[in-house]
Design a protein around this nucleic acid. Structure first.
Length: 638
DNA sequence: GCCGTTTTCGGCCCGACTGTTTTCAGTCG
C-alpha cells in the first residue's frame, strides 16, 4: 500500500497541529508538546478539550499526578502518526492511530475517566493501551521506539506545503536535515542536487521553510464567513457558474477555519477555473486545472472544485467532508457494493459513476436520511441515521430571546432602547440585560445603587415596548472564593442572574472547580456564563474540571451557557454534547456589547448543532409564556 | 491496527494536480 494514501487519511488533522522540535529525552518530547506557548490553543480548537494554562512548575506538578489531558493525548497520538508515516509504516496501521486520535479528540470527558477505552470508535486493544499510557503520563513503547529512531523535528518538516513524509524522510537521510530551521539555512543547490528534485521543488521548499510560522492563526467563524461569502459572490457572478456554495469546515461550522473550500457546478469548467486563477484577490495560484484551482488570498488558501451540474450533490458532499465522515461512509458503501466519489455512485469495481445531483439523493441511495453538515464528523451520525436516531437540530429561528446582553451602563455600546429595538428586529420575544457587577471595574461594573437605577430604567423601557419583554439581570462576577459580587438580597431583586469568572484565572483546577460549583449552589444563579473562559486563538481556557461542572449543573438545576461570540464559543462542542447527555440545559446567548452583535447568535446555534442539540434543551427557545413560568418557578431541587 | 448485513481473517475511500520524468510518485483535499 502506498504511503501517499495515508496522507489522505491523516490530512484532516495532522496538518493542523503544531509540533515542538526534537527534544533530548522522551519525557521531554511529551513535556514540550504539552507546555509550549501557542500550541495548546490550536489543539483545543481541534479537540474541543480544555487545556491547561501556560506552563508553570505548580501546574506541571498537578498534571504529573493527573496525567495528560485529552488534547495532549491527541497531540501525542498524532506525533506517533507522523513518525510512523516518515518511517513508512503500513498504511492501515497508521490509519488506526489517526482514527484513535480523532476519537479521543471528539470525547467530551477526560480520557482518563473512560474505563474501557475500546468502547471508543476505532480504538482497539493496542491503541487503547497507548492512550492509557499517555493518559497516565507514561511514555508508550511505540512512541519511545519511534522517537528513538527518527528525529522528532521532522514532524514539523512535513507541515511545509508540498513536503510530505517521504520527502521529509529523504531530506533527513540524504541531507542530514532534521528541522525546518535547518532546511531554511540549506545552501542553494543542495536540494536540487537530489534525484527527482528540480529547481522548482527547491525554490518552493526553501521559501516555505523560510516563511514558516509555527503559530499560524486560524480564522474565527465570522471572519471566515465574511471572506468566504465575498469569494463565493465572485464565483457565482461568473457566467459559466450554474451554482456554487461554501463547503469544507466552514459549512460544517467548525469553531475555527484554516482554509476555505468552494464548490461550483458549471458546464464550462475551464473558463470558470481560469477566471478564478486570474481573480484580482488571488495573490498566488497553488494549483490550476480544469477541475480544481487552489489560490491564496491574504495568506488564506481558497480551494475551488468544479463539476458538471448533474454531479453537484456528490461534489458538495465530498468537499464538505469531514474526511472521517467520508471515509466511514465510503467503507460502508463498499460493503453494499457501491463506490462513492465526488462524481457520483458506481457499482463496485466498475468505475462507471452515475452522477448524484443533491446530497439528499446521495444519502437516500445509501439508505440513510440526510445528515446535516454540522454532524459530519464520524461521531456516531451514520449509526444514528441508520437507526432513525438523528437529532432534530436546533435552528437560529428557534431562539426566542437573548439572555445575556450588555448596555452602556457597563461596557456595552448600545442603550437599553437601542438594544431592545435590535432584538425586536430579530423577532425576539424577550431580552435580558446582564451588565457587569461592581468589582469588574475595567468593564465599568455596576454598584448596587447603579444597578437599582438600571432596574428602574429597564422596567420603564419594558412598559414602552409592547413587542418585547425586557428584563433586568446581571452578569455577576464569581469572586475568587466562589462568593458572588452582589449580596443575595440584591440578586433576589433581579429577574435573572448569569454568573461568570472574569478574574483570578490561575487559581488551579481544584480551586476553580470549587469556586464555580459554589456559585452554582446559589439559588439565584440561573446560568454560568462562558464556563471555561477561553478566547479562541488568544487565551487558553482556565484549568477547571468541566465534567464536574456538568454533574453539579445537573444537580443544582443550573444552566450552562454556550456563548455565541466567535472568539468564545464557550462551552465547546464536546462538553455541550456531554452536558446534554447529562440532562443539563443550555442557554445560547450572544453576550452582545452592541446592537449588531445580537446577530452573532447564529454562531452559537451552529456549535449547538454540532453538539447534537435539539431546541427543547435550550432555555431561550421557550416561548415567552413558558419562559416566564420557568423564571417564576425558580431553580429546581438543590 | 481495527472490525464484522460475506467475515474472527482478509479486507480496509477516491481523485486532481505538480514536478520531473517519459510513466508516475508524492502531495493534498
Amino acid at each position: 500500500m502506498k504511503a501517499s494514501a495515508l496522507r489522505k487519511a491523516a490530512w484532516s488533522s495532522a496538518k493542523k497541529i503544531r509540533f515542538i522540535p526534537a527534544s533530548p529525552s522522551l519525557d521531554g518530547t511529551i513535556l514540550a508538546a504539552r507546555t509550549a506557548p501557542g500550541i495548546i490553543q490550536k489543539d483545543d480548537i481541534r479537540s474541543g478539550w480544555s487545556a491547561s494554562p501556560t506552563y508553570n512548575p505548580h501546574t506541571r506538578l498537578t498534571r504529573r499526578v493527573r496525567g495528560l489531558q485529552n488534547n495532549e493525548v491527541v497531540r501525542a497520538l498524532e506525533t506517533i502518526v507522523a513518525l510512523m508515516e516518515i518511517k513508512d509504516e503500513s498504511y492501515y496501521r497508521v490509519l488506526a492511530y489517526q482514527r484513535a486520535a480523532e476519537s479521543v479528540g471528539a470525547l467530551g470527558r477526560p480520557v482518563r475517566e473512560v474505563e474501557d477505552l475500546t468502547t471508543l470508535p476505532h480504538v482497539g486493544g493496542t491503541t487503547a493501551e497507548v492512550i492509557r499510557d499517555l493518559a497516565e503520563d507514561r511514555t508508550p513503547e511505540i512512541l519511545a521506539e519511534l522517537s528513538g529512531e527518527i528525529p522528532t523535528g521532522l514532524v514539523e518538516v512535513t507541515r511545509l506545503p508540498g513536503v510530505g513524509p517521504r520527502t521529509a524522510g529523504r531530506l533527513w537521510r540524504e541531507l542530514d536535515v532534521t528541522s525546518v530551521e535547518e532546511i531554511a539555512s540549506l545552501e542553494p543547490g543542495r536540494l536540487s542536487s537530489l534525484k527527482g528534485f528540480g529547481k522548482k521543488s527547491e525554490e518552493r521548499i526553501l521559501s516555505a521553510a523560510k516563511k514558516y510560522d509555527s503559530h499560524e492563526r486560524r480564522m474565527l467563524l465570522d471572519e471566515a464567513t465574511a471572506l468566504g461569502n465575498r469569494i463565493l459572490d465572485f464565483v457565482r457572478s461568473h457566467p459559466a457558474t450554474e451554482k456554487a456554495e461554501l463547503a469544507g469546515s466552514l459549512r460544517r461550522m467548525k469553531e475555527t477555519i484554516g482554509d476555505l473550500d468552494i464548490v461550483a457546478a458549471s458546464t464550462d469548467p475551464d473558463s470558470l477555473a481560469d477566471a478564478f486563477a486570474d481573480a484580482p484577490f488571488a495573490d498566488e495560484v497553488l494549483a490550476h486545472g480544469p477541475k480544481k484551482v487552489y489560490i491564496v488570498t491574504n495568506g488564506i488558501e481558497v480551494d475551488l472544485r468544479i463539476v458538471e451540474p448533474e454531479a453537484y450533490g456528490s461534489l458538495l458532499h465530498h468537499f464538505t467532508g469531514g474526511q472521517a465522515h467520508n471515509i466511514v461512509l465510503r467503507e460502508r458503501a463498499v460493503k453494499m457494493g457501491i463506490n462513492i466519489s465526488e462524481y457520483g455512485l458506481a457499482a463496485a469495481g466498475t468505475g462507471e459513476y452515475e452522477p448524484v445531483a443533491t446530497e439528499e439523493d446521495l444519502y437516500s441511495r445509501l439508505g440513510l436520511p440526510y445528515i446535516p453538515p454540522e454532524l459530519r464528523e464520524d461521531a456516531g451520525e451514520i449509526e444514528a441515521g441508520e437507526k432513525g436516531g438523528l437529532p432534530d437540530l436546533i435552528e437560529t429561528g428557534d431562539i426566542r430571546g437573548d439572555l445575556h446582553v450588555h448596555t452602556n451602563y457597563s461596557d456595552g455600546k448600545g442603550t437599553i432602547e437601542s438594544m431592545a429595538e435590535a432584538a425586536i428586529a430579530l423577532g425576539y420575544e424577550y431580552l435580558i440585560f446582564c451588565d457587569h457587577s461592581q468589582s469588574l471595574r475595567v468593564a465599568n461594573g455596576l454598584s448596587p445603587d447603579r444597578l437599582k437605577k438600571k432596574m428602574r430604567a429597564v422596567r420603564e423601557a419594558d412598559e414602552k415596548y409592547g413587542e418585547i419583554h425586557l428584563l433586568c439581570g446581571s452578569e455577576v462576577d464569581i469572586l475568587k472564593d466562589g462568593t458572588l459580587d452582589y449580596e443575595d438580597d440584591l440578586l433576589a431583586e433581579l429577574d435573572f442572574v448569569v454568573a461568570s469568572v472574569h478574574t483570578s484565572f490561575g487559581v488551579g483546577e481544584e480551586a476553580m472547580t470549587r469556586r464555580i460549583v459554589r456559585a452554582m449552589n446559589n439559588p439565584h444563579v440561573r446560568v454560568i456564563g462562558h464556563p471555561t473562559g477561553r478566547i479562541l486563538e488568544r487565551r487558553d481556557p482556565y484549568a477547571v474540571d468541566v465534567s464536574r461542572l456538568i454533574t453539579e449543573a445537573a444537580a443544582t438545576d443550573t444552566v450552562l451557557e454556550l456563548n455565541s461570540y466567535p472568539d468564545r464559543l464557550d462551552l465547546s462542542v464536546p462538553y455541550v454534547r456531554q452536558a446534554i447527555e447529562a440532562g443539563v440545559k443550555i442557554s445560547i446567548d450572544t453576550d452582545a456589547h452592541d446592537e449588531g452583535a445580537l446577530s452573532l447568535i447564529k454562531y452559537g446555534v451552529s456549535q449547538a448543532r454540532r453538539a447534537w442539540v435539539e431546541k427543547d434543551r435550550v432555555i431561550n427557545c421557550m416561548p415567552w409564556n413558558e419562559f416566564e413560568k420557568y423564571l417564576k418557578a425558580g431553580k429546581g431541587p438543590q
